[in-house]
């Protein structure tokens, strides 16, 4: 049984989506602009894109690269962040470098990396990897730093070696914070993917968007926006489900994505 309040809470995002689409519909009817189709027209164009085999293959290839880049970045960033959080020397070593990298627009590296590695999957995955790494490192670092010293001492008294303490105490204790970083990283992976495809204009979802724009297929442009937006919202919602399951034990957190760094 779902209580009425829980029902409204679950329905609220759906209502918000419908509301936003309604605002769009009204705005486009009022503006009567040729290049601004109504929400209904855009939604009608969605099945056309997803039914188009080439477009679908393109989008799936994008998603595969995104998953690769995200996965490698997470596997690389969590251990680094945890080490930085537990060792002042490691933190002092990496912090300035990361601070310098932080404001570099990662997707903007696309043309340069293309110059070296070509336009293949490696380049695109590498750019996504760069985009995802920083927030995951940062949150793992913060999470590891906040682990209570006495908890580690308790573990040490039970005979855990330093490495065991890192894996069996610091990692789980920092998990809520790590997953917050991963959630930010996931959205950033999608953003970096789309942006780099818009810049390189070779293939993928970002490319479909601008091709349609250049050819004046405005329905397709807006339909693609709906598809990409839905991807972002779904990925975030799925990840939030997983996160909530994994850290059921932790004190309830602020349930909005707080960090975008």
């Amino acid at each position: 049984m779902i209580s009425p309040t829980a029902l409204t809470r679950r329905a609220a995002p759906v209502l918000a989506c419908i509301g936003l689409l309604a605002v769009w519909q009204v705005a486009s009817l009022v503006l009567k602009n040729d290049s601004f189709p109504t929400a209904i027209e855009a939604i009608r164009a969605v099945p056309d894109i997803l039914g188009d085999k080439e477009a679908l293959i393109n989008i799936l290839a994008s998603l595969r690269r995104m998953a690769m880049g995200f996965g490698v970045a997470v596997l690389f960033s969590i251990p680094l962040g945890l080490l930085m959080g537990r060792s002042r020397a490691v933190a002092a070593f990496f912090n300035p470098l990361l601070m310098v990298i932080y404001p570099v627009p990662k997707a903007a590296l696309m043309p340069i990396i293309m110059l070296w590695l070509g336009v293949g999957d490696v380049t695109k995955t590498l750019v996504i990897f760069l985009g995802v790494s920083l927030p995951v490192i940062y949150h793992s670092f913060e999470g590891a730093k906040a682990v209570e010293e006495k908890m580690l001492w308790s573990g040490a008294a039970m005979g855990l070696s330093p490495l065991q303490r890192l894996v069996r105490i610091v990692l789980p204790a920092a998990l809520p914070e790590i997953l917050t970083g991963c959630r930010t990283g996931l959205v950033l992976a999608l953003i970096t993917m789309i942006t780099s495809e818009m810049i390189a204009r070779q293939s993928g979802a970002g490319n479909i968007l601008f091709n349609a724009l250049d050819m004046g297929q405005y329905d397709t442009v807006f339909a693609m926006i709906i598809i990409v937006g839905a991807m972002g919202i779904c990925l975030d919602a799925i990840f939030e489900r997983i996160r909530a399951r994994l850290v059921r034990w932790s004190e309830p957190q602020f349930d909005m994505p707080l960090s975008f760094s």
Partner: peptide, 18 residues
């Protein structure tokens, strides 16, 4: 160093929350 022959109990409890 620490060892299982000496067991600490802290004011902060230091339980593993997970």
């Amino acid at each position: 160093g620490p060892g299982p022959d000496r067991g600490p109990v802290f004011q902060e409890f230091a339980l593993f929350p997970w």
